[in-house]
Design a protein around this nucleic acid. Structure first.
Lengths: 260, 260
DNA sequence: TACATTTATATAGCTTAATTTACAAACAAC
DNA sequence: GTTGTTTGTAAATTAAGCTATATAAATGTA
């Protein structure tokens, strides 16, 4: 049993044929004509034309240039925008395929054990959600660093795109929540270290849930702020972590996303 | 413009109706009868029956128990396996939705810049692939630690499921490649530190590609082994990293997957 | 044994999607 | 101006899927 997936761009309501449409776009890029492209996909000319018309109309910028008459009776070519859309699709697609592939390798479908689902669920979706107010936004050319003041006094840094800042309509003083996977939280007992990650939180360990393989650590940052981390039980023992011990949680700024 | 996706279980070739089929399974769990479930989805009885029959036949274990006749004329209920499949589906689905949601928030579709595609492509798919031989496999109840001896002399640790070990047919001495996203590689200048991550590689910085926001660092571990890391330019400067400087790369064992 | 209710299966009819076919319009090249 | 090739539309035709309907088979219960 295998997993697979269909990406849909949302510019059309019939998702299942996006794959075919991308093939069509590629063929158009190759042959320079809807007619030849349709033959090579294969699909009917009308279907091809309808698809292209729908995409052109629904997307914010035209995806193809169509010209009628002329040297060889006209032709159709992808716009720069169209090429980028195709690039983006293939990028997404390959990433998704890799994701699903590794996942189905991890799962034994012949006897799905509750344990493996629980574990997957833990590594996939265990997340920290910690709220605070926007203290400062530092705009770069493409990305922005968003500084979030927490109840505990710490300032957390998240890197998101400028576009995301606008989409969320972020402004100073906004109450937001920082979201990051507990899988992305590293724990160290050296509190003073130079590391590329920008977020370092020192706190005391409040709770340890020890599984066979993985352990979940809940760290108290003070004033109600907590950070959870999942690490291996081995690492837990190696570091000598115990309830009440002081430790340091490390999170990369780019691993933190922001919700409002 | 939005992204969305369709998950397909591969136990059927017509992916686009999986969503409906999962709804059907849920309804069966609730009502205990195909008839009532079909009415509530809604879909025709025949379509429901065909779906269930197809799923039952194609999946390694039956998904539903059907009984005819009896107290209330019989009935249909989900097997334990069926319930788990449903659980797994919803888990995958929600994770995928989150992935696509954050992604589409990061992209400005009105003018897709080459820069943003390049950047996305970098954060999504930039990966390290480093080969070595299996030195030791430590089996746990669910997961296994695989120790891989590198050319540089380092031993790398990867945590994967026992099932994956079997699927790959891993054995001592096998030549394998360890794969991990360069996004998951942290850089520090403190070479002696206690941290939950199990992989620490000390090397010299061989190459720095500095972008506007992100920088890509290539570290030489010796004997041809290299590790790439993408960190923010800010972090690069803060750590004072330069070509020839000694640094330490940190990778979580669970972030490393194995290919053969 | 008759009953109630559901699964299991076949078939006719309907509805929608897609292919095919046909043809007008455009226009650079000859 | 004729030609050749393609885009752009419309209508006819075919295919496929779904619904509705009918009916046999199963069987615990009354």
């Amino acid at each position: 049993m295998e997993f697979s997936s269909n990406l849909t761009l949302g510019i059309l309501n019939e998702p299942f044929l996006l794959e075919k449409r991308i093939r069509l776009l590629n063929a158009i890029d190759q042959y320079g004509s809807i007619l030849k492209a349709a033959k090579n996909v294969p699909m009917s000319y009308k279907a091809a034309w309808d698809s292209i018309d729908a995409m052109n109309n629904l997307s914010p910028q035209p995806i193809v240039n169509r010209s009628t008459g002329g040297k060889n009776g006209g032709g159709t070519s992808l716009t720069e925008y169209g090429k980028k859309v195709v690039d983006l699709y293939t990028l997404f697609k390959s990433e998704q395929e890799r994701f699903l592939q590794t996942l189905s390798k991890e799962i034994n479908f012949n006897h799905l054990e509750l344990e493996s689902i629980r574990r997957l669920s833990m590594t996939i979706s265990a997340r920290n959600q910690i709220s605070g107010t926007v203290e400062h936004i530092e705009r770069g050319k493409v990305n922005a660093s968003v500084f979030i003041k927490l109840k505990s006094g710490y300032t957390l840094v998240s890197i998101i795109t400028n576009h995301a800042v606008e989409a969320l309509d972020l402004a100073l003083g906004n109450r937001v929540s920082a979201i990051f996977k507990s899988n992305n939280v590293l724990i160290t007992t050296d509190s003073a270290l130079n590391i590329s990650a920008r977020n370092k939180f020192i706190g005391t360990i409040a709770e340890i849930t020890q599984g066979a393989i993985n352990a979940s650590i809940k760290m108290d940052l003070g004033n109600g702020d907590t950070v959870s981390s999942t690490i291996t039980t081995d690492a837990l023992l190696a570091l000598g972590l115990q309830k009440g011990v002081e430790a340091c949680a490390i999170v990369k700024a780019s691993d933190i996303m922001i919700g409002k």
